[in-house]
Nucleic acid binder design. Structure first.
Length: 637
RNA sequence: GCCCAGAUAGCUCAGUUGGCAGAGCACGUCCUUGGUAAGGACGAGGUCGCCGGUUCAAAUCCGGUUCUGGGCUCCA
């Protein structure tokens, strides 16, 4: 295994950190300490809870180790010798397990620097003095081997660079990333709020944010119309039965909100003194009961009922919908379909609710209630390929229009070693081939990732990075052979026989919340004119021009432009500054000369002062910029 | 859910050993009537996240809780 010079440096930094930690805390038990994309970490087991002050001490000790200019020495040993070394150093708690991970026949090596010696494949820098620019960043809990059943260890994160300048540049870049974090911009630009009393992970779209979202929805709705979609509306809840049929309940109940139980049933179980736990059991009993019915109907063991209770103990209720598909399926199934009707494309901005773990919530990008720009396509097998290409084209239009070019495409396939997938493998082969072929039409590189498929079919995901480098799945297109079976969907073919349709799930934005969060960071709050909550700020030089300003405001509003007249009693510079900070695309300065000539002095946020021009001429250009959803053309230096 | 760290005015933050709650920006009124990123004066604004405890006295110490941040786990 070879490392890049930077990885080598960071990996060595983690060894040096371990050296320092053992000097300060000789009882520490080490697990692993690899380099990462942005630095390094080491997982250690230590009863003492590390604090920020400890980090300072460890960092100081690391500096000493670096200054001691210790050589890194490689030593290859037999497995038996390795066990001896580990034991002699009192590090058997985790290191023996790590040793056991090394396959028979592979070389076993240790690296030694000074008094420290660690099981390690390498490679390393030659001397510890190479470590000139490093910084310890944070302490975090991390489960041994990433399994939450295992003990949680203390992980120390740090970073290292070849030079101090590069380290400083990295830290500076991290600071700048914070400035475009959607959580900060969302507050500063008044785009959304999350209120503790409403609930964590639940987004309140304020007027400004709602404009951005509404514009995006209008945009996608226009595209849907062109591509032959029908828009539908469905409620936010559905009976448990529905989700049992779809397979969402109870198999994903840990990531759903607790079911809503009807008043009468609730009163009854309360009068019986039924505990919460019993209630869950009885709700599940409904599921098991229904599962047995479905198994009988489809003749397949699509669901294995783990418990079937007598009808008397059944309890019914409703669930906040975790997905829109069951509702759309019921619309499709509400009437017979001929092959001539297909594809049927049902679209909805459908709000769904999922019980994400509290520690996973994050601004707009990981929430508990969100609106998917969802659609379900019901088509024949022959139509799958063409429909997939249509879906991908839609995602491409969205990304191109918004100037988002920094994304990767992931084709999620079955994990060959897993049996969690439903449906027969011939269908899977076809669906995977269709996804692969469709992805190839995108003209961008994509990766095929086994194990990333949904349980009902393969998918094509668009993954984009946020400013801190975290990746988020946005647009997704998924092929589904499973739900049509569960809901026993059919259409009448040319042969006058019923056939099973194939479903495609797709959401070009993914969710409005996550997409807007990433979009805020993508534009750093500088939205193109068509998305900007306020498109034009009218700035009179003095109150003598207020009447002219009101006149233009009326005309702008009549033209459908979102404009505000700044009536504050401030000097021009202050008003301009305010408009800049609020990231308004256009500021129109109105002085005596402009009022006289019915002109405006245009200041573009992207390009600066653009000089005076007749108001009607400016309005025409602006309307065109908005109508074409143009991206701001940044002035070239 | 787990580990660590936080929560003071709308925002960003200060607040010493426990002893009357602070600043800048934003906001309001007035003065100023201006030419492309901050003119001036005055004013209003806080149950120091919430609940409990210790104390003559708690923003400050202790316990609990809610929420936030960084990770881990998870993401149909």
């Amino acid at each position: 295994m070879s490392m890049t010079p930077l990885e080598e440096l960071r990996h060595s930094a983690s060894h040096i950190m371990a050296t320092a930690i053992l000097r300060l805390f000789p009882e520490a038990k080490l697990d692993i300490g690899p380099p990462t994309d942005t630095g390094f970490y080491y997982d250690i087991d230590l009863d003492h809870k590390l604090t920020a002050e400890d980090l300072v001490k460890i960092e100081a000790e690391m500096k000493k180790v670096a200054d001691e200019n210790q050589p890194f020495l490689r030593k290859e040993v037999s497995r038996e010798e390795a066990v001896e070394i580990i034991k002699s150093r009192g590090q058997e708690r985790y290191k023996l397990g790590r040793l056991a991970d090394i396959p028979e026949g592979e070389k076993i090596s240790f690296y030694q620097n000074g008094e420290f010696m660690d099981l390690c494949a390498g490679t390393h820098v030659r001397y510890s003095s190479k470590l000139k620019a490093f910084k310890l960043l944070s302490i975090a809990g991390a489960y041994h081997r990433g399994d939450e059943k295992n003990k949680q260890l203390q992980r120390i994160y740090g970073t290292a660079f070849p030079t101090k300048d590069e380290l400083a540049a990295y830290l500076e870049q991290q600071e700048q990333a914070k400035a475009r974090d959607h959580r900060k911009l969302g507050r500063d630009l008044k785009l959304f709020v999350i209120d503790e009393d409403v609930g964590q992970g639940l987004i309140l779209w304020t007027p400004n944010g709602s404009i951005v979202r509404q514009e995006l929805q209008n945009f996608i709705s226009g595209e849907l119309h062109k591509q032959g979609y029908s828009q539908v509306f469905t409620p936010h809840i559905g009976k448990l039965e529905l989700y049992k049929t779809s397979g969402h309940f109870p198999y994903y109940k840990e990531s759903q909100f607790t079911p809503v139980v009807e008043n009468v049933s609730l009163a009854q179980i309360l009068s019986e003194g039924c505990s919460c736990a019993e209630m869950v059991v009885r709700l599940e009993a409904v599921s098991a009961h229904l599962a047995s019915q479905i198994n009988a109907r489809t003749g397949k063991e699509t669901i294995t009922p783990d418990r079937v209770k007598p009808d008397a103990q059944l309890l019914d209720g409703f669930m906040l919908k975790p997905m829109n598909c069951p509702h759309h399926i019921k619309i499709f199934a509400s009437q017979p379909h001929s092959y001539r009707d297909l594809p049927v494309r049902l679209a909805e901005f459908g709000t769904v609710y999922r019980w994400e773990q509290s520690g996973e919530l994050n601004g707009m990008t990981r929430v508990r209630g969100f609106t998917q720009d969802d659609a379900h396509l019901f088509c024949t097998e022959e139509q799958v390929a063409a429909e997939l290409i249509g879906c991908l084209a839609l995602v491409k239009i969205v990304l191109t229009t918004l100037g988002m070019s920094d994304y990767r495409v992931r084709v999620g396939l079955r994990d060959p070693d897993s049996n969690k997938y439903t449906g027969d493998s011939a269908n899977w082969d076809k669906a995977e081939a269709a996804c692969r072929a469709a992805a190839q039409t995108l003209g961008v590189p994509f990766t095929e990732e086994p194990g990333e498929a949904a349980f009902y079919g393969p998918k094509i995901d668009f993954v984009i990075k946020d400013v801190i480098g975290r990746e988020w799945q946005l647009g997704t297109v998924q092929v589904d052979y499973n739900l049509p079976v569960r809901f026993d969907l059919s259409y009448i073919g040319a042969d006058n026989q019923p056939h099973r349709p194939v479903m495609i799930h797709r959401a070009p934005f993914g969710s409005m919340e996550r997409f807007c969060g990433v979009l805020i960071e993508h534009f750093a709050g500088d939205f193109p004119a068509w998305l900007a909550p306020e498109q034009v700020r009218l700035v009179p030089i003095s109150e003598k021009q207020l009447d002219y300003g009101r006149d233009l405001l009326t005309q702008l509003k009549a033209a459908g432009v979102r404009a505000i007249l700044d009536e504050h009693n401030d000097k021009l510079g202050a008003k301009i500054r305010r408009a800049e900070l609020e990231k308004i695309p256009y500021t129109l300065v109105l002085g005596g000369k402009e009022a006289e000539a019915r002109s405006v002095s245009v200041r573009s946020r992207a390009r600066g002062d653009e000089g005076v021009q007749p108001f009607v001429q400016y309005l025409e250009k602006l309307r065109s910029e908005i109508a074409t959803r143009a991206l701001p053309e940044v002035k070239r230096a």
